[in-house]
Amino acid sequence: MTADVVIDIAREVVWVIVKTSAPLLIVSLVVGLVISIFQTITSIQEQTLTFVPKFIAVMAVLVLAGGWMLNDMTSLFVDLVKSIPQYIK
């Protein structure tokens, strides 16, 4: 296995990680920003006010996009396992 192959595999793995984590991170960021603006406007500084809505939003996205995320990660793993004989040569 050459260095180019290892770099290609690493690049593909990192890309799948970015693709599958992006929806969760974006939703968490948006919900956190909205809650932060709400807290600033109302002067409410409750810690659970930021945690609970983020948790619910992330779980909702996970329910909605979880199948796609799992399929994406599974296909990467299957491709890597199928390619093992090529990498050994």
Score class of each variant (00 low, 15 high):
1 M>L: 01
2 T>M: 01
4 D>T: 10
5 V>F: 10
5 V>Q: 12
6 V>E: 11
6 V>D: 05
7 I>S: 14
8 D>Y: 05
8 D>S: 09
8 D>H: 10
9 I>F: 02
10 A>E: 02
11 R>W: 11
12 E>T: 10
17 I>V: 14
20 T>V: 03
22 A>G: 06
23 P>H: 01
24 L>T: 01
25 L>N: 04
27 V>H: 02
28 S>L: 10
30 V>W: 07
30 V>I: 02
30 V>S: 04
30 V>P: 09
31 V>I: 09
32 G>M: 01
35 I>A: 07
35 I>Y: 07
41 I>G: 15
41 I>Q: 08
43 S>Y: 00
44 I>E: 01
45 Q>W: 08
46 E>L: 08
46 E>R: 08
46 E>P: 12
47 Q>V: 12
47 Q>M: 15
49 L>P: 08
49 L>V: 14
49 L>M: 15
50 T>S: 13
51 F>G: 14
51 F>S: 15
51 F>C: 13
52 V>S: 00
53 P>D: 07
53 P>Y: 07
54 K>A: 09
56 I>R: 00
56 I>H: 08
57 A>S: 12
57 A>N: 06
58 V>T: 15
58 V>F: 08
59 M>I: 13
60 A>G: 05
61 V>R: 07
61 V>D: 09
61 V>W: 03
61 V>T: 08
62 L>E: 05
65 A>Y: 08
67 G>L: 03
70 L>K: 05
72 D>L: 11
72 D>S: 11
72 D>Y: 10
72 D>H: 13
75 S>E: 15
75 S>L: 13
77 F>C: 00
78 V>T: 13
78 V>E: 11
78 V>Y: 08
80 L>W: 04
82 K>E: 07
82 K>I: 09
83 S>A: 13
83 S>I: 14
84 I>S: 05
84 I>F: 07
85 P>H: 03
85 P>C: 04
85 P>R: 03
86 Q>L: 14
87 Y>I: 06
89 K>Y: 15
89 K>I: 14
89 K>D: 10
